[in-house]
Amino acid sequence: MDSSTALVIETHNLTKTYKGVQALKGLNLKVPKNSIFGFLGPNGAGKTTTIKLLLGLARPTSGEGRVFGHAIGRDSVRIRQRVGYLAQDPRYYEHMTARETLRFTAGFFFSGPAAQIEARIAETLDLVGLADKADRPLKGFSGGERQRLGIAQAQINYPDLIILDEPAASLDPQGRRDVLEVMERLRKYTTIFYSTHILDDVQRVSDTVAILNQGELVAQAPIEQLLAGSGGLIYQVKLKGDAEPVRGLVAAQPWVSTLKVDRVNGATAWHVGVTDEAAAEHDLLRLVLSDPAVSVAEFARQKYDLEEAFLKIVEGGDHGKQ
């Protein structure tokens, strides 16, 4: 499979302007097949605009995008045949029941046989835990139940791509957990592209992440790469004993760019910035231990949690481009 067919979503300089305000600025996005792709950004970053453009609900001002190789806008009906979508604040016909809503949704994808369609509806209701509320009108549904119905209607058609816009934003912790569990179950069958500003959720389920800020893509990488940091490689070394003599030796290495020292509870903590990961992995610990007066309590490559990485990228002056 070449790289183009391995991409489910691909955009090229996608731009959207609303009444003179650029909501999206030249977005170049690549979403690999079978990924759970977290689309991060603060409120107003342009996440929902991007999703609407991908689905043909809004028209780009300039640039282009492809989903399954189909041009957004021109082939949007074909795209939507293979996509399931849950909006940020989904609205359904209140007089319908959950089962009627799914039957109506299924009617856009399947023409029969009726018994098989009903079986699919029942299976979907079961998947999201709404089987016992299937025949109640939606006007009595809680926020969590609506969100579960939203996931149900988004995957009734066995979509190759599920797009979820802030699927857990309005939910309590239990509701969030349920939604994430459903997403993890679905990942076996489909690509999931979801926007969120809840970083814990992304760290838990995503394998690839893009960060959008003020309409611009500021980072796009596998989550492990993003968590490794965007300010260069840093090793953390916690030492006991007099480390001053060996500090000069380490700092003199050509692959060491910075060496900061902290004192923590009588121990010494070094933050060693390196330019050559292989040299650091091979030599750094050996150099430190070459001084018999020093013992190493901890040695690890520094990892950011996603919140740190996100804030660093979003608030960083250079946008922390990856």
Binding site: Q81, R82, G107, F110, S111, G112, P113, Q116, R120
Partner: peptide, 12 residues
């Protein structure tokens, strides 16, 4: 669509 072959797709 990650299809279920027993369901007939709506024609274009």
């Amino acid at each position: 669509m990650a299809s279920n072959s027993s369901l007939q797709a709506v024609p274009e």
